[in-house]
Simulated scan of single mutants.
Amino acid sequence: MATGTGLAAISDALLAMNSTRQVRDVLQTIVGSARELLNARYAALGVPDGAGGFAQFLVSGMTERQWRAIGPLPRQHGLLAAMLRRAEPERVADIRRDPRFEGWPEAHPEMRGFLGMPILDGERVLGALFLADKLPERPAARTRLRDGTGPGTGRPRGDTSFTEEDEELLRLLARHAAIALTNAHLLERSRELSIAEERARIARELHDAVAQKLFSLRLTARAAAGLLTRDPARAAAELTEVTRLAAEAADELRAVVVELRPAALEEDGLAAVLDAETRVLNRAHPARVAFVCREPGAPGPDREEALLQVAREALHNALRHAAPSRVDVSLDRRGAHTVLRVVDDGTGFDPGAVRRAGRRLGLVSMRDRAQAVGGSLTITSEPGRGTVVEMEVPRG
Rank of each mutant, 00 (worst) to 15 (best):
A2M: 13
A2C: 08
A8E: 15
I10Q: 11
D12V: 07
A13T: 04
L15M: 09
T20M: 01
L27M: 12
V31N: 02
G32F: 01
L38C: 01
L38D: 04
L38M: 00
G46F: 01
V47S: 01
D49G: 05
A51E: 13
A51I: 02
Q56G: 01
P74M: 05
R75I: 10
Q76V: 04
H77Y: 10
A82N: 05
P89K: 07
E90C: 11
A93M: 07
R97A: 12
D98R: 04
P99F: 14
R100F: 03
F101S: 08
G103W: 09
A107S: 09
L115E: 08
L115Q: 07
M117N: 03
I119N: 00
L120I: 03
D121M: 06
D121N: 08
D121F: 07
G122R: 06
V125C: 00
A128I: 02
F130S: 13
L131M: 00
P136N: 02
P136S: 06
A140N: 09
R142Q: 13
T143A: 12
L145S: 15
T149V: 09
T149D: 03
P151K: 00
P156V: 06
P156R: 11
E165F: 02
E167F: 05
L170I: 11
I179W: 10
R189T: 15
S190R: 13
E192P: 03
I195K: 09
I195N: 08
E197Y: 14
E198P: 02
A203T: 15
A209V: 15
A209S: 14
Q212V: 07
K213L: 11
L214C: 06
L217P: 02
A221F: 04
A233Q: 15
T240R: 09
A247F: 04
A247L: 06
A249P: 01
E252I: 10
A271I: 06
A271L: 07
D275N: 14
E277N: 13
R283D: 11
R288K: 11
R288V: 11
C293L: 01
R294C: 02
R294M: 05
R294E: 15
A298D: 15
D302M: 04
H316D: 15
H321Y: 15
P324D: 04
P324G: 03
S325N: 05
V329P: 09
D332G: 13
R334M: 03
G335V: 06
L340Q: 12
R341L: 14
G346R: 10
P351W: 11
P351T: 14
A353C: 06
R356T: 15
A357P: 11
G358V: 14
S365N: 15
D368Y: 10
R369H: 12
P383H: 09
V388Y: 03
E390G: 04
E392K: 03
P394L: 01
P394M: 02
